[in-house]
Simulated assay, not measured.
Amino acid sequence: MRIVVAHGGDLSTPSGGTNRVSAFAAGLRDEGHDVTVVVPDPEGELPKRLGDVRISTVQASTGSVTSQPRRAYKIARRAKREAAEQDAVLQFEHSTLAGVGSLIGCSDYILDMHDLAFPSPLYAEQPFGTVLQRAVRWIEGRGVRDAGRIVTVSSQMATLASEEWGIPEERFEVIPNGYFQDTVKNVDPDYSNGTRVAFLGTLHPKLDVMSFVDIARLPEVDEVAVIGDGAKRNRLKVAKRDHELDSLSLYGRLPGMDAYDIIAGSTLAINPQHESPLQRASSPVKLYYYAALGVPMVISEGPDVADELNDVGAATVVPHSESFHESVREVVTSESTIEEMSASARTAAQGWTWTERSKDLAALYDERTGHRSFN
């Protein structure tokens, strides 16, 4: 089958979202499909996994809210043309891009819905944020309604979208995020002399900054390693200075495998978050890597994968009404607990590779074989 995947972000910048797109594109290619990816001109080198995937680039700036409408229009228009010329199935990444595709006449496509866009602080914090959110919700709703099938990262995300726009749940397919097995195999753990608690990922508004501070104050913890960048990094810098937290290490983004080496050599990995509908509906990529690396976890309740990890004994899940740092203290002071959680995490992660997730997506395309639409 010929498949055209449209994505509005820079695939040369690693993140949970871009890794999902490149993993699916490469995975569909490995399953025997002819795949074209339509994306903005990348600023850096594309992942090697896309070497056998046809790339169609569009001149469009990335990285700002103001550039989104024009970029989405150019990407959607190119993707529609590519799909028509190839007689291909169209797959949109993100519901807002699909909404723009809907406006120019696309329909019956597969929508890979990473999250809900309109509730995001990205829009609420802009001038005339309420008006902007309404506009984004309208565009997003079009994108979801005109899709033939909708792939979401969690069952809670499917329920949210179904209730928001009145779409039957049978049109949704849940394919969570995953991890790259080759990345895990190439890790060289960077062990600490003391007790290191680590976090890896985007420092987005969902993060609970005070939990990082409270953990760094624990006498049982020698280092809190925070790897990543984002909106909350400045808050963490201020907290480190104001509370004189020498144990709080803010690494920012790290090149290559350095981040995973630090995580793999840590005593414990964390994900403290504020509660919200989007937080509960998320599928945090970091948790799949924590598990694959065999690192015990203390994580906030909410996402589906948190419940899965808790059920198998790989993570301590902290209700939002309880103390996150006290749960960290309990785990790091029990060597037997750490060993048991580590073994459980590795076992749980065995079926969570991007290879397996891509097979699930390929199975969805198999449903279309011999049919004109998904409806």
Results as ranks from 00 to 15, higher is better:
S102V: 01
N193T: 12
V197L: 03
E220M: 07
L287N: 14
G141L: 09
D214A: 13
T152F: 08
G9F: 14
A161V: 15
G252Q: 11
V21C: 10
K237V: 13
A225C: 10
P168G: 02
D190W: 04
P272N: 06
T355C: 00
I270N: 07
V312D: 01
L248M: 09
Q350C: 01
V144A: 14
L361R: 08
V224N: 00
L254D: 11
L122H: 12
G194V: 01
P272T: 06
V5H: 04
E322L: 10
R196W: 03
Y288R: 08
V38M: 10
L293D: 02
D34H: 11
T337H: 05
S211D: 14
V328A: 02
S192P: 02
H33E: 10
A306H: 09
I215P: 02
A349G: 05
G32S: 12
S64V: 02
S342D: 03
S95V: 05
Y289F: 13
F374I: 08
T57V: 15
E170L: 01
A88S: 04
R346A: 10
P127V: 05
V221P: 01
R372F: 13
I3R: 03
A306G: 10
D52G: 06
S358I: 07
S247F: 00
H325C: 09
I150Q: 05
R20T: 13
M157Y: 00
D115V: 10
S15V: 06
T130N: 14
A83S: 14
P127G: 07
Y288A: 07
P69L: 12
P42H: 09
